[in-house]
Amino acid sequence: MAQPLWRCGVFMLALLPLLFWFYQAQQGLLGPDPGKVLLEHLGEGALILMLLTLSLTPLQRITLWSGWSLIRRQLGLWCFCYASLHLMSYLAFLLNFDFSRLNHELWERPYILLGFGAWLILLLLSLTSNAFSRRKLGKNWKLLHRLLYLGLVLALLHLLLILRSDFGSWMLYAGVGLILILNRLFGLRSP
């Protein structure tokens, strides 16, 4: 497959859910509390994108197709985009832009702090995702970007702490995350 086409297709696929949710919110299809639904969709989307981003290297090793790594940076940035919109929704829909409450909420509620930590990692990785930073950081770049695994753990804990009764989808995400982490620690290394 031609590289630009593949990248462009992935771009469209990642953008599509955002457009769809925006359309649903516009049409009043998200129910009586649309902000809360958007918030949850965006958070779940960010988590899925995080898992996908971390799956690309193992996928490349299994399928021996180099196309996977071509979209790694893009998916990572999409993950940051979803996570940022998730954070924005929290500020807008739950805190009603009352920033005096943010500080309090941050320290009172461990899951808020965990989520914020995950977002800070994504911010740092996004800022250093360009070719310049990569050159500048040299070997350290790879180490730095392994922080995404920590981001994943924080994000999973963040979700776990807010769940109330049904853990079905959390188990799925955590299961995939665990496989990725175990693979990173004990799996096949690149030659």
């Binding site: 919110a25 009586p32 509390d33 902000g35 809360k36 829909f93 009603n96 909420e105 509620r109 702490l161």
Partner: peptide, 18 residues
């Protein structure tokens, strides 16, 4: 413990009217 009870969202609300 996971959120403040000082305020509430009266439903239905909207994306632009919290």
């Amino acid at each position: 413990p996971r959120w403040s009870q000082a305020q509430e969202r009266r439903l239905p609300n909207g994306v632009f009217s919290s």
